[in-house]
Amino acid sequence: MEWADLMRAANAGDEAAYARLLKGLAIELRAFVRGALARSNSAVDVEDIVQETLIAIHLKRHTWIDTEPFGPWMRAIARHKFIDAMRRIGRRVHVPIEDFENLLSAEEANPDTPRSDVEKHLPQLPDRQRGVVQSIALDGRSISETAKQFAMSEGAVRVALHRGVKTLAGVMRGAV
């Protein structure tokens, strides 16, 4: 049976047809996801995306119009689930701020480096990084205060701080 026929039978209550449909779709979806992940160089688990797609198909099966082709409807769901997985990875930016505690205050990071030396090199940073480093490292504001000040998420502040401190350390090493 073709997928559309299996889906029609499943929607009519045929559990065996539904089981065959899901089994066949899982094989097709694994191939699609593996190919897409290979192109994206991502470390996402294929099976996670396949299962999310099958769940979405199950939950949305009533939205498929049985006079329309099944393949495009199913591939649209699979594509959206794949994109959702890629977005989740992109948002997983975790910079453990504790690793940089000793760099947060320029005077604590290196007591031999006067605050004025840090301030002298600060203009070499991009605007947003400069503002974040200034706010946290020199002015003593918290991550949440800085996030509100610059209308950024706390994660974005941590990333900007990490990048800014790293760039500043490189600039200062080169100036010594």
Rank of each mutant, 00 (worst) to 15 (best):
E2S: 15
R8S: 06
R8V: 07
A10W: 09
D14R: 05
E15W: 06
A17G: 06
Y18T: 08
K23D: 15
A26T: 13
I27Q: 13
E28W: 04
E28R: 12
L29F: 05
L37R: 01
V46R: 00
L54Q: 05
A56T: 11
I57P: 05
H58M: 11
L59P: 00
L59H: 10
H62P: 00
H62Y: 11
I65G: 06
I77A: 02
I83W: 00
A85E: 00
R92N: 12
V93T: 01
V93I: 10
E98K: 05
L103I: 06
L104M: 13
S105I: 03
E108K: 14
A109M: 04
N110W: 11
D112N: 13
D112W: 11
T113K: 07
V118N: 06
K120W: 14
K120Q: 14
H121F: 14
L122G: 08
P123S: 10
L125G: 02
L125P: 03
L125F: 00
R128N: 12
R130Q: 10
R130I: 02
G131Y: 02
G140L: 00
I143A: 04
A147F: 00
A147D: 00
Q149M: 13
A151L: 09
S153G: 12
G155N: 11
A156L: 04
A156R: 07
V159I: 10
H162W: 15
G164V: 01
G164C: 02
V165S: 03
K166V: 15
T167E: 15
L168M: 03
M172I: 14
G174E: 09
V176M: 09
